[in-house]
Amino acid sequence: MSETPFIEAAEIAPGHDGAAELVLFVRYPGAGRQTVTLDADAAEVLFEHTQTGDVRALHGVPWHHLKDVLQQRPGSGAAGGNS
């Protein structure tokens, strides 16, 4: 079991506003699991942060990369943009 949260899985999914989104499944120490969805802009930042352009390469990436991305997003923090 990892001592820090990490991205357990990542999938591309449709957003309700007609754009594709990146769904991340974050696994926490102690087996907790949470879903975080990023829009295209936030995902772009994450890909740059992790120096990858492949959704599969996100598997196993530590949580701090995602946390940094969310903190760089003053607007929505995650997917959204508009309801």
Binding site: I12, G15, H16, G18, A19, A20, A40, E44, G53
Partner: peptide, 19 residues
Amino acid sequence: PIDISFTFEVASLLFAGLP
């Protein structure tokens, strides 16, 4: 249902599974 629209002008995440 939800449709996804895209052009080649903007990088859609639809292609994020294809490096």
